[in-house]
């Protein structure tokens, strides 16, 4: 069967052609392509690794900055709080002081008013007393014009004294 019988000339040329192709491609062809592919793969892997590192670093930096911001905010709050408290305290103190002073003023005013009232009352009393005495003297003078009346009075007084002594 001719189809299944390798022709010697064709075998020769095939050996030659395939040999040359094999030599050329194994020397200058595929190793270069394979190396390029491998190097690129390595490069991509490295780049990915680097990118991941960079991303992590960025994340860390971001977190750090967040921390800083948070700290600053907290500090701000604290400062504000402190200020507010101090302010309140100050206001409180001032208020207290003012109240105290006001109370003192009111007290002293009251005292003075009282004293004046008393003085006025005393004066009025004295006035009334002297007036009463004067009136009484006048009345007495009127009533004790007569001796019986004086006597009667003396007696009445004596009784009264006695009653109080008993």
């Amino acid at each position: 069967m001719g189809l299944l019988q390798p022709e010697s000339g064709l075998l020769f040329w095939m050996c030659l052609a395939f040999g040359v192709v094999l030599f050329l491609l194994c020397k200058f062809g595929f190793p270069i392509i394979l190396r390029a592919i491998e190097q690129r793969r390595e490069y991509i892997d490295n780049s990915l690794e680097e990118a991941r590192g960079a991303r992590e670093e960025t994340l860390q930096l971001k977190q750090e900055s967040m921390h800083i911001i948070e700290d600053a905010q907290a500090q701000r709050w604290r400062i504000l709080e402190n200020t507010r408290a101090e302010q309140e305290q100050l206001a409180h103190q001032l208020k207290e002081k003012a109240e105290k002073e006001a109370a003192g003023i009111i007290e002293s005013a009251r005292m003075e008013a009282l004293a004046q009232k008393e003085a006025i009352l005393r004066e009025a009393n004295e006035h009334v007393v002297s007036l009463a005495i004067a009136v009484a003297g006048k009345v007495l003078m009127q009533e004790l014009k007569e001796p019986q009346a004086q006597e009667k009075l003396a007696r009445k007084l004596m009784d009264k004294v006695n009653n109080t002594q008993n």
Partner: peptide, 30 residues
């Protein structure tokens, strides 16, 4: 002894040239 460039051999040589040009062309690119 017959080492003629027959039709098959000619085709073989043409195709081998194409293979070599294809791969070396691609390799040259790098």
């Amino acid at each position: 002894w017959d080492l003629s460039i027959t039709k098959t051999v000619a085709g073989l040589l043409i195709n081998s040239t194409i293979v070599v040009l294809l791969i070396l062309g691609a390799a040259r690119h790098y």
